[in-house]
Design a protein around this nucleic acid. Structure first.
Length: 913
DNA sequence: CTCTCCCGCCACCCG
DNA sequence: CGGGTGGCGGGAGAG
């Protein structure tokens, strides 16, 4: 055998490529895309470990290969040659493509590799014609190596909304290794994240993860800066100019902007406190560019920014060169930034039509309330609506919007206030940040704070101890987002405030929502139908959440509250990744969801193949939205152990009687354990489906309860009451196919706002009455009311959506311990129903029009396993092209899951635990 | 062809 | 000075 092996190797080209790999693995981890971590990779097939790009190498003959040779020895030692391996070698030798494919496969699946044992499957696949065919079909594309995808993987490692007590440190080396890429790539990601203050540099090679808590603040700051810089005017000017001239000249640009001076330091990255940070270098360009880019969106009325305009403005800012190459370079950088922002679900790619054709552009899909007045947004959205569908916006619209913007003043912050709210105010003090509700967060202060916290963990500890606790602050609207006073502003037009469309979060959806549903009372379902043409999935299936208050963010985020990876520890690589990924309900996640469609097939397969166990681990994924409460203990390990959380909730999910009838509830509960929060899941959307969470991991495959909820901040009349409306649902959506349920009134949940923070709330639209109806049975019109356990006095009301769901479908089985939530809810007995019950029948979506349909159709009955998806995988898909196709497939696969679209909102029980 | 953007060379700068 | 960072742009995949 050995001889043979050698021979084979030789065939392939022993020296160059392979050797390189070996080398890289060892010391030279820096090469890009090299999958360094062998240990993690289960199978050590030679191919897999191949170094970087075979694709390139294909061109070269072994001899010619430019890559420096490395010692074979290494390789040989590491890789045992098995018959299978030999086979692979042969195959790859025969087909460079295959070889390449293999290599990439391995490279890009670092995460999966970790957990999974793809050993067998991989090898097996390789062998045989079938395998070959697959390869060819599946050959990894560039997209799989994209920065966006990489970023998603990166983000999957960390909780979007880490508990305040948790301090997560990011080791660039570790991340690079675990993601199988060169460190250089990580810099790109980190730089952009840093520009948004999602991370901050702690030390060489070390970054601290902050999560999205301060994102709103950061965005607000950026918006303000952008306004000050008059970016909007610049954009309008450039756009107009282009219209007029076909060409632009940088010199002509308006000078009023005077961006440069300020721009240089947009956000003060300098982190005084941060040791060894190379903050002050002038090389922060990517970060600055990123901030500027974001500002353009924030300032723009349309929220659409074309790359050329952005590039021009940016160039202007820092460079005077107009030459084409400069421009080109800038654009390249913008793409890099855009990829990261896209991964964060802040923007999405669109095109603006022009005389010349289409222009690449990006649309802001992140929180919108930072930008302009609600009214204006709505108007703009409405105007653009027609074009939303295609995702192509005509320039006319853009310009019109720009003009509109110009003339209107939409600064939210009073001038007076602004004056003292400078972003760049030198060394920032943490304290400042924590000041009142309006406290302005200084950029740069985060790092300091972060460190500080790390040093004094006292507070954190307390919380950690139980695992349960969350600093109420996290929940408390005020806490995390102090700046966000949920002011009147927000209250005025609740709908406008924040809209999260789930996965795809399309602006479109968003816009549509705004436009269509101006009245809170409107059911999303109806809206959906209207808008349906736009994006089927979104409206109908997607749950929408409107949250005026800052708390909204929490909802949006993925809550992954799963324990954040411990600093330095590896665990995150595995558990956290998986869990995190699963958890993601964060915007990023949402985005992913949308993008995932593009997932490479391979991933799909993997998912399928993925062992249930794994999936479960990943299962956390939530729907697009989740309201998370940081219940989890600081301990990262928690993720695995639901129990901890259980503390908080006196009753474990398992114990809790879940009303099987209440799908939503079940979903909620089921997950809760893992995260410590309840998230809602929505799978209804086709798009989402992919994402879908596995949550089901629970097995529950859940049902489908789609939920779309509108969370409305209490209008004036309702003081202190928060209302959740199950938007999406039209009743029918939920109702079983056969039965026709009379639409119920809009079910809603009213919660005292004050209580939100502290108490867990469950709202399940689909909830059936306590008694489980037979499938197809008529839903209960009456909403169910629960009482939140543990909250003796809690005034929360839960109302079930009108439609009833098939009992079966609904529940999530708490079976998975991990999934089980800590919360103690006392719900209707039903909840406890067996996991499995459901699937096959899940009627839920059938009624749905459009997008939903597919899901429903999914051939597979949702078995728990099937349900579980690996989110992670989905996340990895780059946004892109495959989308729909893949999506569909996934949908079908996940149909079950989809059906279970549910939303869980968990409200932290505050100190309760 | 254009759009994207991966890849990695190599300069910069910190420690 | 070594090594971490990241600017930069060639060139190739994708559409």
């Amino acid at each position: 055998m050995e001889v043979n092996c050698l021979t084979l190797k030789d065939l392939i080209n022993p020296r160059q490529p392979r050797l390189d790999f070996a080398t890289e693995d060892g010391e030279n981890a820096q090469k890009e895309n090299i999958f360094v971590d062998r240990s993690r990779m289960a199978p050590k097939t030679p191919i897999k470990n191949e170094p970087i790009d075979l694709s390139k190498q294909k061109i070269f003959t072994p001899e010619r290969n430019p890559i420096t040779p490395v010692k074979l020895v290494d390789r040989q030692q590491t890789e045992p040659w098995t018959p299978t391996a030999n086979l692979k070698m042969l195959i790859s030798a025969a087909s460079p493509d295959i070889r390449d494919w293999e290599k990439k496969k391995g490279l890009f699946r670092p995460i999966e590799n970790k957990d999974e044992v793809f050993t067998d499957s991989l090898q097996l696949r390789v062998v045989g014609d079938v395998a070959v065919e697959k390869f060819e079909k599946r050959r990894p594309s560039r997209k799989q190596k994209s920065l966006g995808l990489l970023c998603q993987k990166f983000l999957a490692r960390y909780p979007s909304y880490p508990l305040s007590a948790e301090k997560t440190t990011i080791s660039l080396d570790e991340v690079a290794v675990s993601l199988g890429v060169e460190r250089r790539r990580i810099y790109d990601i980190v730089n952009v994240l840093e520009s948004l203050q999602l991370v901050s540099r702690l030390a060489k090679n070390q970054y601290g993860w902050h999560g999205r808590h301060s994102l709103p603040r950061t965005l607000r700051n950026l918006q303000r800066l952008g306004e000050e810089q008059k970016y909007e005017e610049q954009m309008a000017s450039l756009q107009q100019r282009e219209l007029d001239l076909m060409d632009y000249k940088f010199g002509e640009r308006k000078k009023d902007g005077c961006a440069d001076p300020h721009d240089q330091q947009l956000l003060d990255f300098s982190e005084p406190d941060c040791p060894s940070s190379s903050v002050n270098r002038k090389d922060k360009s990517l970060r600055i560019m990123s901030q500027k880019f974001v500002m353009l969106f924030l300032v723009s009325k349309t929220k659409i920014v074309t790359l050329d305009v952005a590039a021009k403005i940016l160039i202007e800012g820092s460079q005077n060169v107009l030459d084409h190459s400069k421009f080109k370079t800038k654009v390249r950088r913008l793409y890099d930034i855009a990829n990261v922002l896209t991964s964060l679900a802040l923007i999405k790619k669109v095109h603006v039509t022009e005389e010349r054709g289409r222009k690449p552009a990006f649309k802001w899909i992140g929180p919108v309330d930072f930008a302009s007045s609600d009214e204006e947004l709505v108007d703009v959205a409405a105007s653009v609506l027609p074009e939303l569908k295609s995702e192509t916006y005509s320039k006319v619209h853009v310009c019109a919007a720009q003009k509109l913007a110009r003339r209107g003043s939409f600064n939210r912050v009073p001038a007076s206030e602004r004056s003292h709210r400078k972003v760049n105010s030198g060394p920032s003090s943490p304290s400042r940040e924590e000041q009142g509700p309006d406290g302005f967060l200084e950029i740069g202060s985060l790092a300091a704070i972060y460190q500080q916290q790390i040093e004094d963990k006292p507070q954190g500890k307390a919380l950690d101890g139980e695992g349960v606790t969350l600093p109420s602050s996290s929940l408390d609207p005020a806490a995390p987002f102090p700046v966000h006073p949920v002011d009147s502003e927000y209250c005025v037009n609740p709908l406008v405030h924040q809209v999260f469309s789930v996965p795809q979060t399309d602006l479109q959806a968003f816009s549509t929502q705004n436009g269509l549903n101006r009245q809170v009372g409107v059911s999303l379902a109806s809206a959906a139908s209207d808008v349906e043409s736009l994006k089927p999935g979104l409206l109908a299936g997607q749950p929408l959440l409107y949250v005026p208050s800052t708390s909204l963010f929490m909802l949006c985020g993925s809550l992954q509250e799963g324990p954040p990876p411990e600093p330095g520890s590896e665990r995150d690589s595995r558990g956290s990744e998986a869990s995190a990924a699963a958890l993601w309900s964060t915007p990023a996640a949402q985005k992913r969801l949308g993008e995932e469609r593009q997932l490479p097939e391979e991933e799909e397969e993997e998912e399928e193949e993925e062992p249930a166990a794994k999936r479960q681990s990943r299962g956390y994924e939530d729907g697009p939205l989740s309201l998370v409460m940081p219940t989890k203990s600081a301990d990262s390990s928690d993720v695995a152990s639901p129990k901890m959380r259980g503390n908080r909730a006196s009753v474990s999910l398992e114990d809790m009687p879940l009303n099987s009838h209440l799908p939503a509830a079940r979903g909620v509960w089921g997950k809760a354990p893992a995260h410590g929060f309840v998230s809602s899941e929505w799978r209804s959307l086709p798009r989402n489906t992919e994402i879908e969470k596995p949550l089901q991991e629970n097995e529950g495959t859940t049902e489908p309860s789609l939920l779309q909820c509108l969370y409305v901040q209490p209008p004036a009349g309702l003081n202190g009451l928060n209302v959740l409306l199950p938007g999406s649902q039209t009743p029918h959506a939920m109702r079983p196919p056969s039965g026709q349920l009379p639409p119920l009134g809009v079910p809603c949940m009213v919660l005292p706002s004050s209580t939100l923070g502290p108490f867990p709330v469950l709202y399940s639209p689909t909830m059936a009455g306590p008694v489980s109806p037979a499938p197809g049975s008529v839903p209960n019109t009456g909403p169910g009311c629960f009482r939140l356990p543990g909250l003796g006095s809690t005034p929360h009301l839960l109302i079930g959506p009108a439609a009833l769901v098939n009992p079966n479908s609904s529940t999530l089985p708490p079976a998975d311990p991990q999934l089980q939530g800590p919360h103690s809810l006392n719900q209707s007995p039903v909840m406890s129903r067996p996991h499995n019950a459901t699937q096959p029948t899940s009627p839920v979506y059938e009624g749905h029009p459009g997008s939903v349909v597919k899901l429903q159709q999914s051939p597979t009955p949702g078995t728990p396993k099937s349900t579980r998806h690996t989110h992670c995988e989905t996340f990895f898909k780059t946004p892109g092209s495959l989308g729909d196709r893949v999506l569909r497939r996934r949908q079908s696969k996940q149909s079950q899951n989809a059906s279970s679209a549910q939303r869980r909102l968990e409200i932290p029980s505050g100190g309760a635990h």
